[in-house]
Amino acid sequence: MAGTTVGEIRARLVLDMADWSRRSQQARSDMDQMGRSSANLSKQMGLIQKASLAVGGAVVAGIGVSVKKAADFEEAMSRVKAISGATGQDFEDLKNIAAKMGAETKYTAVEAAEGLQYLAMAGFSVKAQVGSLPAVLNLAAASGEGLGRSADIVSNIMTGFGIKAEDSGHAVDVLVKAMTTANTDLPQLGKQNCPAAWEQAA
């Protein structure tokens, strides 16, 4: 420090103070930017959390609906089992046809099971129920009647006319023709005056 003048010392202090001031401002700027980044990150995390909750809620709701549908189907098939007396592979065949019709047609598996109930009540064998259900679905779609009601009517008519279950497709064709040509509907065909309409269509 020997030989250093007061002016030089003052100049160094001024420079040091200016540098310190510049560094302080940079530090404040960095802190402000970090604060804004943190706030933005917090906001983004909040949005992600809300989206996750929404998706999670939808998934949970979807699972809840699926579980209820499965429970409804099992309940409907339990009624089919009780009415038909089917067990083992026979019962599995009934479940499979109901599930298949539920997947391939506009009707649900529960509605298909309802159709099986009426066929079983009409005394159809398991094989006859499995073979007749697709035709009953076609009749329900053509008539606009419910699946269970359609199964009830067509099975009653088939029983009344001595029509075999394997001929259910033909029976449905005749009923559809009767509806379109005799100015009538399926419930009317199911009443006592159905023989005339049936014979006219057949």
Rank of each mutant, 00 (worst) to 15 (best):
G160K: 03
L116Y: 09
A151F: 03
E111K: 01
F73N: 01
I83Y: 13
V14I: 14
A140T: 03
K177G: 04
A140N: 03
S78M: 06
F161M: 09
G62D: 09
G146S: 05
S132G: 08
S38W: 12
M34W: 13
E8D: 14
M158F: 04
S38F: 14
N40V: 13
V14A: 14
A98C: 07
A202R: 10
G162I: 04
A171H: 01
E166M: 09
A122E: 02
A27E: 15
S42F: 14
Q25D: 14
A51T: 14
S155T: 01
V126A: 12
A11S: 14
A135V: 07
R149L: 04
A2R: 09
G123Y: 06
R79M: 01
I153V: 02
P187R: 03
M158C: 04
S155Y: 02
D30M: 14
D173T: 05
A202K: 13
V110K: 08
M121K: 09
T105P: 00
V172I: 08
I157P: 01
S24W: 06
K177M: 06
K100I: 00
A2N: 06
A51M: 11
A141S: 07
V176I: 11
E114R: 04
R12L: 10
G115F: 05
T159V: 06
A112V: 03
K69S: 12
L186M: 00
W198M: 09
K106G: 01
R23Y: 10
G57S: 12
A142H: 03
K106C: 00
A51Q: 14
A202M: 15
T181N: 07
D19K: 02
V60K: 15
L189C: 04
N40W: 11
A178D: 11
D152G: 00
I48F: 13
P187A: 06
G123A: 05
S38G: 15
D32H: 13
I83T: 12
V174Y: 02
A70F: 10
S150Y: 07
G190P: 01
V126K: 11
L15T: 15
S84G: 08
Q49W: 09
G64P: 09
P195W: 12
V110F: 06
A18W: 03
Q200D: 13
S66F: 08
V6K: 13
D173I: 05
A128S: 08
P134R: 12
K100V: 00
M17P: 07
G62L: 06
Q129T: 05
N183L: 05
Q129D: 07
V14P: 12
E166N: 13
M45P: 11
Q129F: 02
A61K: 11
P195E: 13
W20M: 08
A103V: 01
D185V: 01
F73P: 00
A109W: 07
D173Y: 01
Q89F: 13
V65N: 07
T4L: 04
M101C: 05
M101W: 02
Q44G: 10
N138L: 03
F124E: 03
